[in-house]
Design a protein around this nucleic acid. Structure first.
Lengths: 106, 106
DNA sequence: TTGACATGCAGTCAAATACCTGCATATTTA
DNA sequence: TAAATATGCAGGTATTTGACTGCATGTCAA
């Protein structure tokens, strides 16, 4: 998995909104996703391509339609491999900060 | 908290690297953070400003030095309010995908 | 088969981004 | 106080990004 692609894909509110929409109703077509997205179909397509590149969605065709499915695995991986690291260090870091601020007051 | 600022701040590998560095050694000065970052001090400053704007780090001054401390709270909030939603839906969505692909094969 | 529908692809363009240089300010120390 | 050190601030610029238009391709249905 490419961490950077996932983070970049999540950086845009439009793309997060698309993921939200798919979370509500998985397997939507491009056209369906467009109706909620105040922009042209072509722009939405570009965003979806980025999400697909980050493996956050996968697609399949049914006739002339393209169906979009959310893939939560990269999100989970990012959390496990990156976010959690900072979670666990939480208390210690806050303690460090407190100590540092007090030293600063001397 | 501003979700968008957090996501945008995390989108850049340099900034994630800075957070990593602070996770290893919290409370580093700007100069210390720069030594590991193959770029000018001014560029690092800009990245740090973005991280601070997203509340991912907080700073304090000690004399002429500026100390940087990581703040894991926004990361935790983003996880709780955004990522977890997709986590919990995981099995159902994969099931949907399987079903959809099978329907496509008919 | 032809018209309507769903999507794909190429190119344009303005705004945002991420670097940089140059200079200013504040603090420590000899 | 003067020099060295640490950081702040103001632009400049090349690249990336995110939107658009226009046209092409593929599929369904009458």
């Amino acid at each position: 998995m490419d961490d950077n692609k996932v983070f970049k894909a999540l950086a845009d509110p439009t793309r997060r909104s698309l993921l939200d929409s798919l979370c509500d109703a998985n397997g939507q077509t491009l056209g369906q996703l467009c109706t909620a997205m105040d922009m042209t179909r072509q722009s939405v397509t570009q965003h979806l391509a980025l999400l697909e590149g980050a493996n956050l969605i996968s697609t399949t065709r049914r006739g002339r339609e393209k169906l979009h499915f959310i893939n939560p695995v990269p999100l989970h991986d990012v959390y496990e491999r990156w976010v959690r690291k900072f979670e666990t260090a939480r208390l210690g870091l806050l303690h460090d900060l407190k100590e540092q601020l007090e030293r600063n007051d001397e």
